[in-house]
Design a protein around this nucleic acid. Structure first.
Lengths: 103, 103
DNA sequence: CTAATTTTGACAATATTAGTCAACATCAGT
DNA sequence: ACTGATGTTGACTAATATTGTCAAAATTAG
């Protein structure tokens, strides 16, 4: 189970800012143990938490969200031969959706 | 909740072959009610079931799997502004993974 | 050494998903 | 309209998975 890159990135950022896990955990109202696991990919991050952390760290929110979302996708496709093709098809579907929404 | 396109496709194929839901359900050892819901996107399909159906219908398995997997991805990204960008990032990650595996 | 921080594992509480069933609805053929 | 086959719906239970909480152990910094 994963969320590797996002968790790692979040840890990296936090350490750069020299903020203790303990303190950040309090700020976002999450148990320290859980945040620790999230940073190491042992528990799943949530969109909400990624957002909050982006704000606290004053870090580009969209960049982190994209990282987070792409982790989820990788997870769905883990070890799947058809990964790349699937992404193309998904892209087409989304583009189709979007064009319909604009009407 | 979703899995729209895959379920619909499966129904379409089944109807073309004029196979009753009831019979197919027995073949793949799933309750009729559940299969009915899966075809209409009320319950989630599983990879395993998609495979089995592809075989029973003698239909291209990969095509159906890609449809199924892309539905899952769309679900993760539902209504997400960052959808397309996310897919690009996911694609890069997968390609990176693949190139590492080959070493 | 000791104080702060982080990690680990266990556990209960919740939530999500899957399986089962019976009643109901639809439809075709007669 | 009646019958039988098919498909749908909703309710309920069982099985899994996720989340929250905590305390003890491990690690790190000073």
């Amino acid at each position: 189970m994963s969320m590797q890159s996002t968790g790692g990135k979040l840890r990296q950022i936090r350490e750069l800012l020299e903020l203790p896990l303990r303190r950040v955990a309090v700020m976002i109202d999450v148990d320290v143990a859980v945040l620790s696991k999230m940073e190491r990919g042992e528990r799943k991050l949530t969109k909400d938490i990624v957002r909050k952390l982006a704000n606290i760290y004053n870090y580009n929110e969209n960049e982190l969200l994209v990282l987070f979302l792409s982790d989820k996708i990788i997870y769905d496709l883990q070890g799947e031969e058809l990964g790349i093709v699937t992404l193309k098809v998904a892209e087409d579907k989304i583009k189709l959706q979007n064009s319909k929404l604009k009407k």
